[in-house]
Design a protein around this nucleic acid. Structure first.
Lengths: 210, 210
DNA sequence: TCTGCAATCACATGTTGATGTGAATCAAAC
DNA sequence: GTTTGATTCACATCAACATGTGATTGCAGA
């Protein structure tokens, strides 16, 4: 039996979901509220397996509710419910520890599957949401477009710069003269189009050269 | 009619998938290969809507195949197939532009749904994979542990340092004397436990203070 | 009220970094 | 077989940075 709490401000939808879940084998709604104002107490009292959490609610909204629950380390799966696949909220919810993110227009049968999936440790997502997540992910990790044609030796020097080494330290670390270090760094600046150590370091991080 | 190409080295599974898809309304297998050695030519020739791509194959493997296809900007959805939800491969596939990632043990009916979902722009994922993706995501974005008690003014200075400003530029940007900039920076170094501009910049990035 | 502390400025001194100019060696590419 | 570019080193000069020491102002909390 999967115990569920609903947070949803729209009374019709709240009632509808309650009836759907209570009318289905293996689900039981142990609470249904129109906002998250007492979310911690409610979760503590009823210890649900899954929470269906609307995002847009008056008072404490779904994202804030999610954070409050996660702060307390309750072992509960939280499925976010939303009308739109709004980029910003998806991002925020996921990094705050939501277990899934589904659209309200999800058909009832599919919704029951999602709740079961969440309860058993999965991460159900409406496909439009999943697409967004993958897109965000690949955007984050495909930033390293350029590599500026740094030579091996130049990369080593840049690495040491990033680690906070002075020219002198780099020279002794690499067993070369300090003037050679200067040469390399000059070349690096040309290639990265910068003209100071800290700009080079910043660029190394930004472009994930390091 | 969704045109599909399969890449799968195991002959039984390849045959099985071909029969499953060809035997189902709305799907047609236009090619089935045991490796990616000619992947670009094959995709070019048959212009499939969806590719089912095994990861572990002799010769050019699935990840490499994926990258080859994405390099050419073919408009094709690629579903990765794998036995395990191996962290490293999931990560690599997603950032290389896979549209979905599913386990081989996926039941046939569900697999057909996934192919349809991919064809219509979704991002089907087996739930254990989705869980991993969300976990990776929230790990990446919950790194900002400390904030070192920097004052507002100090944060401003650090921000400008990160942007590559010199002391002189910071002074004129903030309408203060250069000696005041020095004072702030000295304080910042103390708080961050560093002793050079580039170390401070590096730390700002690492700890996501900026 | 007194005490921190953030924010501001000043002066001095030594270190480090940035840039210019020049040159030698060696391997790979054309 | 010459050119290109990576790697190495040298000398010189000026700008930028790091550090120390000290001082004033003004706000906020004990």
């Amino acid at each position: 039996m999967i115990k569920v709490i609903l947070y949803e401000d729209n009374p019709q939808l709240r009632e509808g979901l309650t009836m759907l879940l209570n009318g289905s084998e293996g689900f039981k709604v142990v609470g249904a509220y129109k906002n998250c104002n007492n979310v911690v107490e409610e979760v503590e009292a009823f210890r649900p397996d899954v929470i269906l959490m609307d995002i847009d609610m008056p008072g404490i909204n779904g994202i804030e509710g999610l954070k409050l629950i996660r702060q307390r380390n309750f072992d509960v799966k939280i499925l976010m419910l939303t009308v739109f696949d709004d980029n910003k909220n998806v991002f925020e919810a996921i990094k705050s520890g939501a277990n899934g993110y589904i659209l309200k227009k999800t058909p009832p049968a599919r919704l029951l599957e999602y709740v079961e999936e969440a309860a058993s440790g999965g991460a159900p997502m409406s496909s439009s949401i999943a697409t967004q997540v993958l897109k965000m992910f690949s955007e984050i990790h495909n930033h390293h477009s350029e590599d500026y044609n740094l030579s091996e030796r130049e990369k080593q020097v840049l690495q040491l710069l990033v680690n906070g080494y002075s020219y002198k330290m780099i020279a002794s670390e690499m067993f070369i003269a300090i003037d050679t270090v200067r040469s390399h760094i000059k070349k690096i600046y040309e290639k990265l189009h910068v003209n100071s150590k800290s700009e080079a370091v910043a660029k190394a991080f930004k472009d994930k050269l390091i």
